[in-house]
Design a protein around this nucleic acid. Structure first.
Length: 631
RNA sequence: GGCGGCGUAGCUCAGGUGGUAGAGCAGGCGUCUCAUAAGCGCCGGGUCGGGGGUUCGAAUCCCUCCGCCGCCA
């Protein structure tokens, strides 16, 4: 029996589950259920990532232990997955003892092997900021990019993974496995990144305690990615249940969001190569959802809270929408209107109504029993169904969920048309019983196959649909074929599978909510006069101006701010030419933290008004003195 | 700035080894009655972003410009 091992990322427990988590997990569930349907032995792993400074801090703020915090958040995930009918085989937590042991064991082994070494950041520490910086981050090679103050050459110890030595091996691996990363354009990005050269990466920390300790060095805890990524092997028994591990590894599919691609496509195979373990077969990076046409924000999250969506539309309809609306791998927009439209159009009208009308006819014209087809019946729907079975398989092997669903809907449309063309009511009146029986059989069997192939997408609804067709067993591989429906089976027509929704009403309601959410976002915090007085804004005169090389927008300005000269990089190059700025008086925020832009230290910023992509620099009376402060 | 991609019907997008464009949705008209005011049929002349080139012929190849987007810096 073939195996299939699919994973989601482990989700960080500093957050309640949101639409993005649901999306990834549903996609993995559809694949898992589909592969099971096709007879594979499937292992589906999901879980939570629970270590790190953020959790340590959040727990401290709440006065509980990090583990207690994690425990409480994990419940939210598990509950949501239950509501979405997520069929994971194991839920791993990075605080599970077997996981911690595996991570320590591998860490130890790579250390002994020389792939992990104790290194030091060679200096460039900013004491006030308590931060280390790499050489390339420093301003003019010597100042902290955060505060602009000089950094010290300090040494902090950290364990490093020798990623640099895996550059060629990774590139070779990508060459040999061109669809290791999907979609294809992401593979190109990964290759380009690796070709630029890889630096060794720090994989331990001494600045917090909430993590897996480095086994031979108590001062260090293992940093997040080394800890988290290995869940994919510890979760299936690496070094604890070797038989299971060998059965399922390598993973067939890691489904992730595009933000964590680098870790999965570069670090992860390198870690595994170091550990002498085969890399996974595929990493699929999916896109993000916007909400009602807007970028996801805190207050908009309520609008698409997964639990709320389930309450309003049902888990299966949401699952269907997420898989159908947007090609997996691309970004998309989630709107209640679009969701309701899909439910009404695809699920209620096309599919639900087809089931309903065919069952009615079966009852009216065939005593509610699946008729016996004859050998000389037409094969129109049968052939389409056979093609559908192949198409769905091909598309789902590429994680093209939307395509798979489209090909199922082609058959649903064809079946609706078939009803019209064959007009069973006429056959009935004309007493053409044999043909009528064939037509009904073709339709019922088509519906059964459609339900079987849709089962991975909408398990509860399709279970109900099959039951209405008189099929009570959970579909398995033998059901993915034409001709399985047994003549004589009694159908059990029920209520419409997908009730229709009032799209207008939903649109109105959500529109209102979005407006409120936007108001919430725009809420401007009131500040005190004391707060304002912290800002030192002065009138400055532009002494010199030149474009920052190789940029369109950035202009480097040298300002006379009254007491001294200051250099500022301003993003106004799209609206002003450098020569027009020289001699101008501008508003200047004096005490903004300096930061480096394109290698130039920008001390403070100049102020301008902007609206609708236009920029307006303030003007001053002729006699305004340079250095005059705005109060 | 470097690398990659995109710009096709009102909307979302297919197509693209060169031979005068397709789907779904929306809209209009018509129609059957088994059905959840569902279904089915008909209606799409859109300079395939602009310009130039290769070719008998380009949405499809090449160059260039414009506008978006991704990765990197």
């Amino acid at each position: 029996m073939s195996k299939f091992y699919v994973t989601t990322p482990i989700y960080y427990v500093n957050d309640v589950p949101h639409l993005g988590h649901a999306y990834t997990t549903i996609a993995a569930d559809v694949i898992a259920r589909y592969k099971r349907l096709k007879g594979y032995e499937v292992f589906f792993l999901t879980g939570t990532d629970e270590h790190g400074q953020k959790i340590e801090k959040a727990a401290k703020a709440k006065g509980i232990s990090p583990k207690e915090l994690a425990d409480s958040v994990v419940v939210n995930f598990k509950k949501l997955w239950e509501r979405f009918n997520i069929s994971y085989d194991h839920f791993i937590r990075t605080t599970d003892d077997y996981h911690e042991r595996v991570v320590q064991e591998i860490f130890q082994r790579l250390y002994e092997k020389g792939d992990i070494y104790l290194g030091e950041y060679e200096g460039w520490y900013c004491t006030p900021c308590e931060s280390f910086w790499s050489k390339s981050q420093l301003i003019e090679g010597k100042c902290c990019p955060d505060c602009g103050r000089p950094v010290e050459r300090l040494k902090e110890k950290s364990y490093f993974f020798r990623l640099s030595t895996y550059q060629d091996k990774l590139l070779k691996f990508y060459e040999d496995n061109p669809d290791f990363v999907m979609p294809e354009f992401r593979m190109n990005e990964v290759k380009a990144f690796v070709k630029q050269g890889l630096e060794d990466i720090s994989i331990s920390r001494t600045t917090f305690r909430w993590g897996i300790p480095v086994p031979f060095d108590n001062e260090h805890v293992i940093y997040v990615w080394f800890d988290a990524l290995f869940n994919y092997v510890s979760g299936i028994g690496y070094s604890t249940d070797q038989e299971k591990f060998e059965k399922f590894w390598p993973a067939d599919l890691h489904i992730i969001g595009k933000d964590i691609l680098r870790f999965h496509a570069i670090y992860w195979p390198a870690f595994l190569m170091a550990a002498g373990v085969e890399p996974p077969k595929r990493v699929f990076a999916h896109g993000w959802w916007t909400v009602e046409g807007r970028k996801m924000s805190k207050s908009l999250r309520n609008v698409v809270d997964p639990n709320r969506l389930i309450d309003a539309y049902g888990a299966d309809a949401v699952r269907y929408f997420l898989m159908r609306e947007v090609p997996f791998g691309l970004d998309g927009d989630f709107s209640h209107k679009a969701l309701a439209h899909r439910i009404n159009g695809d699920l209620a009208n096309d599919l639900g109504n087809l089931l309903y009308r065919v069952l009615t006819m079966t009852i009216k014209y065939s005593d509610g029993v699946v008729p016996e087809p004859t050998e000389d019946r037409d094969r129109e729907l049968e052939n389409l169904c056979k093609k559908m079975i192949e198409d769905v398989d091909r598309y789902l092997d590429k994680q093209a969920f939307n395509r798979a669903l489209e090909s199922i809907w082609e058959v649903i449309r064809a079946a609706n048309k078939y009803v019209d063309v064959k007009a069973p009511w006429s056959l009935y009146k004309e007493n053409k019983r044999e043909e009528l029986g064939n037509v009904l059989y073709n339709l019922l069997e088509t519906l059964r196959l459609v339900a079987v192939l849709l089962y991975p997408f909408m398990p509860v609804k399709m279970d109900e649909m099959l039951s209405q067709l008189g099929v009570e067993s959970t579909p398995t591989v033998k059901d993915v074929a034409w001709g399985v429906l047994v003549p004589g089976t009694k159908v059990k027509k029920g209520k419409p599978l997908f009730p229709k929704l009032d799209e207008e009403e939903i649109a109105k309601k959500i529109e209102k909510e979005v407006k409120e959410a936007e108001k919430e976002e725009e809420k401007v915090e009131e500040i005190s006069i004391e707060y304002f007085s912290k800002l030192k804004i002065v009138v400055a005169k532009v002494l010199e101006a030149e474009r920052v090389p190789k940029t369109d927008r950035l202009i480097k300005l040298v300002l006379d701010v009254g007491s001294e000269k200051r250099t500022v990089v301003a993003g106004i190059g799209a609206w002003y030419e450098p020569q027009d700025l020289v001699g101008k008086k501008v508003l200047y925020l004096y005490n903004l933290k300096p930061r480096k832009l394109r290698g130039v230290l920008s001390q403070g910023m100049i102020l301008a008004a902007s609206k609708d992509d236009k920029l307006y620099l303030p003007e001053f009376p002729e006699n305004t003195p340079v250095g005059a402060q705005v109060r």
